[in-house]
């Protein structure tokens, strides 16, 4: 299968070229080309261990790319410090959610504003309206929330920075199907009404591809397929590999 990333169009918000990353001797990314345009939802699907989360973290410089380039809004961010990347208003809800367990829900959300000092009460309101469950639990410690609530908190925290690019790593992982659907609905809503650009990693390929404008399929550290969400959903090999029994 050919690695078929499209040529970098003008207006690409995030553009990744020939990205390679290794953990010690294990090469996790073997030359990734990927692009996210302004206003898009892009889904990255693939099996466990394909390197999806590594790609998300490499965009943030942790681990550092061995070679290749990551360009955000025309600026090469491949070598800049993780916190400076965040201050370009790229926000991530990472693998495992990484809620601060001994901070209140409100403090967790406020941590999201570090990269956006001008973040206001309006941003807080927006997040709390999106996830009303969080409003009920504002003073509760992050570590005491249920999995679904933690997921909402992780996404909400990322939204507090008013990001230009929102990166979500497995937002539906471990959630009841109904809750997962709520989360996907919230992502669609954010994209539609606020124009937030989204890069989404998912194992739940069916939902992710239905939601996304475009998708990439990752296998063993390489992008093996790309196309619009609908195109990918129709491909028999995708149906066989990722959708069997995954439709819930």
């Amino acid at each position: 299968m050919s690695a078929a990333a499209q040529p970098a169009a003008a207006g690409a918000l995030l553009s990744i070229k020939g990205l390679r990353t290794a953990y010690g001797k294990i090469i996790a990314l073997k030359g990734i080309d990927l692009e996210v345009r302004e206003g898009e939802i892009v889904a990255l699907i693939g099996a466990n261990g394909a390197g999806k989360s590594t790609l998300m973290m490499t965009i943030f410089g942790n681990p550092r790319a061995q070679s290749g380039r990551i360009v955000f809004d025309g600026e090469d961010i491949t070598q800049i410090a993780t916190h400076d990347i965040a201050r370009r208003r790229i926000a991530q809800s990472p693998e495992g959610r990484r809620i601060f367990p001994r901070m209140s829900v409100l403090e967790n959300l406020k941590m999201g504003t570090v990269a956006a000092p001008r973040s206001s009460d309006r941003d807080l309101e927006r997040v709390l309206n999106l996830f009303p469950r969080l409003r009920e639990r504002l003073t509760q410690r992050g570590g005491t929330l249920s999995g679904g609530e933690q997921q909402m908190l992780a996404i909400g925290r990322a939204l507090m920075a008013h990001p230009r690019l929102l990166m979500l790593d497995e937002p539906s992982l471990g959630l009841a199907p109904l809750v997962a659907r709520q989360i996907f609905e919230a992502i669609r809503e954010l994209n539609r009404t606020d124009g937030v650009t989204v890069l989404l990693v998912e194992q739940n390929a069916f939902h992710a591809l239905k939601l996304a404008h475009r998708g990439y399929v990752m296998v063993n550290g390489l992008i093996t397929m790309t196309g619009s969400g609908h195109e990918l959903l129709e491909r028999p090999e995708i149906r066989a590999a990722y959708l069997e029994g995954g439709r819930h």
Binding site: A86, Q92, R98, F100
Partner: peptide, 11 residues
């Protein structure tokens, strides 16, 4: 509590 996450948020 989580240094990596703090950096991801811009700390």
């Amino acid at each position: 509590q989580d240094r990596t996450m703090a950096a991801l948020l811009g700390v």
